[in-house]
Structure formats: C-alpha cells, structure tokens
C-alpha cells in the first residue's frame, strides 16, 4: 500500500517540477573528483581520500534538480571503462589537476580527454573542463588550460572551462549553475 502512495507521490513530483540528470565525472587520478563531489554534496573537504576503485555514485539535490553524479576511478586501468559510463549522460565533467608540476600531467590529460570524446557514442554531450586546485601556487589559469588541452579543437559539442578549488569552494556555484542549465535543455 505504502508503495502505491509513494509511486503516486513520485509521479506527481516528476510531473510538476522535479528533474533528474546524469553527470559523469572523470579525470586522471588524484585530480580531485571524489573530493569535489563530496564538497558539492555539502560534506567537509578532506586532504587524504582513498582512490576510487571502479566507480561510486553521488546524488546531489540542487533545488528541483537531482544530479546523479557517476564518480569514476581515474587510475589507468579504469580509463577504458569511462566511455561506458559516459554514454547517454546529460553532461561530462573532466577534472584536471591544474597545480600538478609534473610535465606529463597536462599532456596525458589531454590525450585521455581527446581519445574519450572521439567516440561517436558520446557525440553532442556537453563537456565541462575544470581546472581544480586553483588555491595552490603555480596553478594554471583558464586560458592556459584551454590552450594546453587544445579545447579549441573540440567540435560538435558545447565546451566550457572553469578554474575552481574544491578546498576553498571557489567557483563551485558556477559549476552547479552550468550543470543545472544542461538539465533544462
């Protein structure tokens, strides 16, 4: 009986104003995917977090929009599986560690990103590139990121790039706003 009422309630909710959307969060390991989602969900920022094995799902409620965020592991062995979890989502969020001094970091991120969005299954899905850890010294700015990741080369989809800090909660509102806009499409 309770199930029936609940179903009716859900249905009413959906009918009038609730929207649900899927967002996939990817990026190299230690870019800050899990931390960002934790902060977005209203949790505390922690410096040490365990690497995600596989994927985990976080549900964010922002106003009338429910965001189902698929947080995928960033280690090399999981990267082959990113594409599967990006199919048919409303938006792909690609996070880069903009303060990682190692010379490989940005080129590798660029390769992974471009090889992912090359897949025809993901055509047209909006892409949000986030340069995380902007609070740290020597972090790359938005313009540098756009150039170094060759975001101008990407066609047939909407691409945005923000510089954020999950720790200092800089620019996070813009991220949420961008995502919610994609739900209204």
């Amino acid at each position: 009986m309770a199930g029936i009422f609940r179903n009716i309630y859900d249905w009413l909710l959906r009918l009038f104003w609730a929207t649900e959307m899927d967002v996939t969060v990817i990026g190299l390991q230690n870019a800050g995917k899990t931390s960002l989602l934790r902060v977005l969900a209203g949790g505390e920022f922690t410096v040490d977090s365990i690497p995600t094995v596989g994927f985990s799902m976080k549900r964010l409620q922002k106003g009338h929009v429910a965001l189902k965020c698929w947080d995928l592991g960033g280690q090399p062995r999981f990267r082959a599986m990113w594409e599967r979890y990006c199919r048919g989502v409303n938006a792909i969020v690609f996070i880069v560690d903009s303060a990682d001094p190692s010379p490989d970091n940005i080129p590798q991120a660029k390769t992974e990103l471009h090889s992912l969005i090359k897949n025809t299954t993901l055509d047209g899905i909006p892409l949000l590139v986030l340069g995380n850890k902007s609070d740290l010294p020597d972090s790359l700015g938005v313009d540098d990121l756009i150039v170094q990741l060759e975001l101008n080369e990407i066609s047939r989809r909407e691409v945005s790039c923000y510089s954020i800090s999950a720790k200092e909660e800089t620019n996070l509102d813009a991220v949420i706003q961008w995502l919610i806009n994609k739900a209204k499409r």
Binding site: V53, G54, F55, S56, M57, M81
Partner: peptide, 12 residues
Amino acid sequence: EDVIMITSSVMK
C-alpha cells in the same frame, strides 16, 4: 571483464 569496476560499490 573489468568486474573490478564495481569494487567500491560492492564494498559500500
């Protein structure tokens, strides 16, 4: 293949 993908989900 790739069952490792769901490790964290199973652990949860």
